[in-house]
């Protein structure tokens, strides 16, 4: 289990939206830019790591009850994305790291892979 606060510190990330409980603990991480792949995941307590910054990233997360998304490669969440995420209680984070670097750091923190 990894605290959101530790993720924010480790990745030098910004919380851009959501009532983000920094003490909340996440167990798993899944990294993909392909929402078709994300939609096949049935894992609770998951952080989505992605560079795909459009409304469908938020919609996909809503359907899967994903509570936290981190955008890598300095991708920004648009205002519409932030509004939709807030409406559904999804916290959005942004960081400048590449997906590979972000995943390596998250793995080091103890976030588990889905498979």
């Amino acid at each position: 289990m990894v605290k959101v606060a530790d993720i924010v510190n480790k990745l030098n990330a910004r919380i851009v939206c959501g009532k983000c409980d920094l003490d909340r603990k996440l167990e798993f991480g899944f990294a993909s830019d392909l929402m078709s792949d994300v939609l096949t995941i049935d894992t609770e307590n998951l952080l989505l790591i992605t560079g795909m910054n459009n409304l469908q990233t938020i919609r996909t997360s809503e359907m899967l009850d994903i509570s936290h998304i981190i955008f890598v490669r300095d991708k920004k969440a648009s205002k519409e994305m932030q509004e939709l995420a807030c409406e559904h209680g999804i916290a959005l984070l942004e960081c400048g790291y590449s997906m590979f670097r972000a995943c390596a750091a998250l793995n080091e923190l103890g976030l588990k892979p889905v498979y």
């Binding site: 929402m35 078709s36 096949t40 469908q56």
Partner: peptide, 15 residues
């Protein structure tokens, strides 16, 4: 480009 179209939708609906 939107993150879909990987040919996984219908099998995932079935699942």
């Amino acid at each position: 480009e939107m993150g879909f179209g990987a040919g996984m939708g219908l099998p995932n609906i079935k699942k």
